[in-house]
Structures are given as structure tokens and as C-alpha cells.
């Protein structure tokens, strides 16, 4: 191989090595490239990021006091809410609990019936879950925590600032 050819070969070696090194860099260049192009074209947002379903119905400007009440009509059951009253914003998901215990020495079945005060507020209570949806059978001496989950509709008339949620247990006769 003569020197002219060797020189020409070495030039080619240098050039191709530069191409190889540049392509190594190109691999790393793809990282910001994809970042920018996906952002610019919005192609990476098939599912919107950080857009968890949010409750837009809450009215934080308004606060309503909820008073909880519990009675057992002619039944030997001890029945009371775990908190007596709480403050909520209309539209907010509210979760409260009632405690009931059967002090008699035999099993007994009861059905809770709701009443609202004022009564017209009743249709603004959207109940998702309530122990009053089913009959409750308690064994002798059994104690139970029972939930009510509801939303106070944001359309609740403006003059209602205090709202009473009251439950009364009645015995379901013939069941024990």
C-alpha cells in the first residue's frame, strides 16, 4: 500500500469515526428531542396527566351545620351518633357514623326511619350509603358501628344554615 493510499484511508477512518461518535451523541440527543416534540405536538397526552377526577360541585363559601340525632322507639337498644354535630360545605362528600347496641339478652331486628329538620331539606340529601337501607338484626348484647354517606346538594336553599338528620329505630315484629 503506497503512502498516498494510506493517507486517504486514514482520512476516511477519521471521517467515519466522527460519524460514529456523532451517532453516539445522537442517541443521547433523542432524549430531549422526544421530550420537546411530544410536548409541542401533545402526542404524549393520550391520557391527560394529573387530571384526577375532581369534585367541582363543592361550594366552599358556604358552611352548613349538621346536627345528628338518634332515637329507639320502644326498643331496648342504645342508639347514638358518634359525633353530635359537624360543619360541612354543600356538595362535599360527608361520612358519619352511628353506634347501636342491643342490651337485651335475645336477638332483635330493627328498621331505622329517617326524618329531616327542616323537612323540606330532605330532598337535597343525596344518600350513597345508609344503615337505614336495610333491616338490622343484633344478637344479644351486640354492639355495632353503622355508616351514613351522603352529599348535601349545592342547591340547598340559602336560608337553611342548620340541618338535622334524625334516625328512629322501630322493632320489626316477628323477627328475632
Amino acid at each position: 500500500m503506497n503512502t498516498e493510499q494510506a493517507l486517504s484511508n486514514n482520512r476516511m477512518l477519521t471521517r467515519l469515526s466522527i460519524v460514529a461518535v456523532a451517532m453516539f451523541g445522537f442517541g443521547f440527543g433523542l432524549v430531549p428531542f422526544y421530550d420537546h416534540i411530544c410536548r409541542a405536538l401533545g402526542v404524549n397526552s393520550m391520557v391527560e396527566k394529573n387530571e384526577l377526577p375532581a369534585n367541582t360541585q363543592v361550594n366552599p363559601a358556604r358552611t352548613v351545620t349538621i346536627e345528628l340525632d338518634a332515637n329507639a322507639h320502644g326498643m331496648p337498644w342504645r342508639f347514638q351518633p358518634t359525633v353530635r354535630h359537624l360543619q360541612v360545605h354543600p356538595g362535599e362528600l360527608v361520612h358519619v357514623e352511628y353506634e347501636v347496641s342491643n342490651v337485651r339478652d335475645s336477638a332483635m331486628t330493627g328498621q331505622a326511619v329517617v326524618s329531616y329538620g327542616p323537612a323540606l331539606a330532605g330532598r337535597f340529601v343525596r344518600k350513597l350509603d345508609c344503615f337505614c337501607f336495610t333491616q338490622q338484626t343484633l344478637a344479644a348484647g351486640e354492639k355495632r358501628i353503622m355508616p351514613v354517606t351522603f352529599v348535601l346538594d349545592a342547591d340547598l336553599p340559602a336560608d337553611i344554615n342548620t340541618f338535622t338528620l334524625s334516625y328512629t329505630f322501630f322493632e320489626v315484629a316477628g323477627k328475632s
Binding site: 460519524v19 460514529a20 461518535v21 453516539f24 451523541g25 445522537f26 442517541g27 443521547f28 433523542l30
Partner: peptide
């Protein structure tokens, strides 16, 4: 010459992700 360096880059990124605290 054009493609192999890109693979070398990709596995290098995996290597630095493993040991040098990068997050490619």
C-alpha cells in the same frame, strides 16, 4: 456506523440509570 452507536448510547443510559443516579 449509523445505528450501532445509538444502541451503545441506549445501553449506556441503562448503565447510568443503574449506577450513577440518572433517570433516563
Amino acid at each position: 456506523v449509523a445505528a450501532m452507536p445509538v444502541l451503545a448510547g441506549a445501553v449506556t443510559m441503562s448503565l447510568t440509570d443503574r449506577h450513577f443516579g440518572t433517570s433516563f
